[in-house]
């Protein structure tokens, strides 16, 4: 048992080592020789918008200009620029509109803060109205809530009501 475990363990270590070496080799080879693949380019292009067309992500934009930008991303990737650097380059050159969302600076914070604030306000308002309504209606029916018992339907009630209705409506 112990032996088997040890053997397995060795085998696993061996494969893990082999795997690491292989992947390492693969990545280094890749970084040196290969140009970045379309998928790597698209992964970044997807997050950017075409600067001249309206609301079209760069990865799916069919125009010649967009093809050039994708090639630019490819070049930048092969030069070792990171995703963040490439995005920053696009913002510097073509303006903030190439980003899928406004950058979180200055006035742009409004875009992120206002909707939750309004929604929260609405929720608070609704909740308070609820409280007010239920309180005033309890005051009317009186404490103890006898009515609530009758208006809370049981299973039998469901069938009974349905039956009654069926009779009346035939």
């Amino acid at each position: 048992m112990n032996f088997a475990f040890g053997k397995n363990y060795l085998r696993i270590t061996f494969y893990a080592l082999l795997f690491t070496i292989l992947t390492f080799a693969a990545t280094t080879v890749f970084a040196q020789d290969d140009t970045p693949t379309d998928d790597e380019v698209n992964a970044i292009a997807k997050q950017l918008y075409c600067p001249v067309c309206e609301n079209t992500p760069l990865d799916v934009c069919p125009t010649e200009a967009c093809r050039q930008w994708r090639e630019l991303i490819r070049t930048q990737l092969s030069q070792g620029m990171t995703e963040a650097e490439i995005k920053q380059y696009f913002v510097d050159n073509y303006g903030a509109r190439v980003l899928a969302e406004p950058p979180r600076t200055g006035l742009n914070w409004l875009v992120y803060l206002l909707p939750p604030a309004i929604i929260l306000l609405g929720a608070v308002f609704l909740f308070r109205s609820f409280r007010e309504w239920t309180r005033s209606s309890q005051a009317e029916t009186g404490p103890g809530g006898e009515r609530s018992e009758t208006s809370s339907p049981s299973k039998d009630d469901y069938v009974a009501r349905l039956e009654e209705e069926l009779k009346n409506r035939k």
Binding site: P51, V91, D92, N93, Y94, G95, A96, R97
Partner: peptide
């Protein structure tokens, strides 16, 4: 030269 950030064109 490039119109950086489309500032001039805007």
């Amino acid at each position: 030269g490039p119109d950086m950030g489309t500032k001039i064109s805007q």
